[in-house]
């Protein structure tokens, strides 16, 4: 079985580049547009795509992603339709590392094993679940390991060292370091503690898994800040969705491509 995520990070490391991870809410504003947005982001330079499966109660998300998820849900987007989007993206991009980001209940309701198997068949490489801490992850980890799916766990600047070690042991694909005390949403600037957190986490993981930093990253300067501190990847979500709300059609798509290009440029060390 090939591991698209590890392959991608290996490739980028050889080139001395950080990875640009782009997050898209499946079905915002509609499924067709989601597909075009993903294509535009990849053309611009996105290395990894995270497809958000909308959930009714996204407690880790700020107003931007909340509104996009709501809109998608109102438009009738189900987890099944989100996986269809994955299938069509996978067809066009066979080598693309593709992760599903959602909340635990989307997996728990149909059954962990059942839903993850469906996701795997659709072309998902792994999951990111912000409300699934390692202590609760027994069934999740077992199903993922059986199916060969990555389980990306999150760490936070306030995660104590002992806990961080447990997270590092359980995470696969990469480690998702939350940049700030807060929920998702574009930010103007970052503080010193983010820098310290990246350095500490990088030190702890050593060479076991790459570290991706996310939440609030919205400008090339932010990207340079994170990559400069030692991050292997940056995750950009709300900044993309904010841009999608400001224009539409071809103009929106070329704008996103240009945005991805600038963000990717900032990933080059």
């Amino acid at each position: 079985m090939r591991n698209r995520i590890a392959q991608k990070f290996g490739e980028l490391a050889r080139k001395g580049e950080g990875a640009l991870v782009c997050y898209v809410v499946a079905g915002y504003p509609d499924v067709k547009t989601s597909q075009k947005v993903i294509d535009a982001l990849i053309k611009g330079g996105a290395d990894i795509i995270e497809i958000g499966i909308p959930f009714s109660d996204p407690i880790a998300d700020g107003p931007t992603i909340q509104a996009a998820s709501n809109r998608a849900l109102k438009g009738g987007v189900t987890p099944e339709k989100a996986l269809q989007l994955v299938r069509s993206v996978r067809k066009i991009h066979p080598e693309l590392p593709l992760l599903a980001m959602t909340y635990s209940n989307i997996l728990v309701r149909p059954g962990m094993q059942k839903f993850m198997a469906q996701a795997k068949v659709s072309g998902v490489d792994g999951f990111i679940l912000p409300d699934m801490p390692v202590e609760e992850a027994g069934t999740y980890l077992a199903a993922a390991s059986k199916l060969g799916l990555a389980t990306v766990f999150l760490a936070s600047p306030n995660t104590p060292q002992g806990k961080l070690k447990k997270i590092i042991d359980s995470t696969s694909g990469f480690l998702y370091l939350v940049s700030v005390y807060g929920i998702t949403g574009s930010r103007k600037s970052f503080e010193d503690y983010t820098l310290k957190a990246i350095k500490n986490v990088k030190h702890c993981v050593g060479s076991t898994v790459p570290v991706a930093v996310g939440f609030g990253i919205s400008t090339p300067a932010h990207v340079q800040f994170m990559i400069g501190a030692g991050a292997d990847a940056v995750i950009v979500g709300s900044a993309i969705i904010d841009r999608m709300g400001k224009s539409s059609g071809k103009k929106m798509l070329s704008g996103l491509q240009q945005f991805a290009r600038l963000m990717k440029k900032a990933c080059v060390k």
Binding site: D57, L107, V108, R109, P110, D131
Partner: peptide
């Protein structure tokens, strides 16, 4: 039916996909 909301595994009113209703 069983599900996860607000930090707990418990009974929920939800649709077949796991969206809380």
């Amino acid at each position: 039916s069983e599900g996860v909301l607000h930090g707990m595994f418990t009974y929920l009113l939800q649709d077949n996909c796991g969206q809380v209703i």
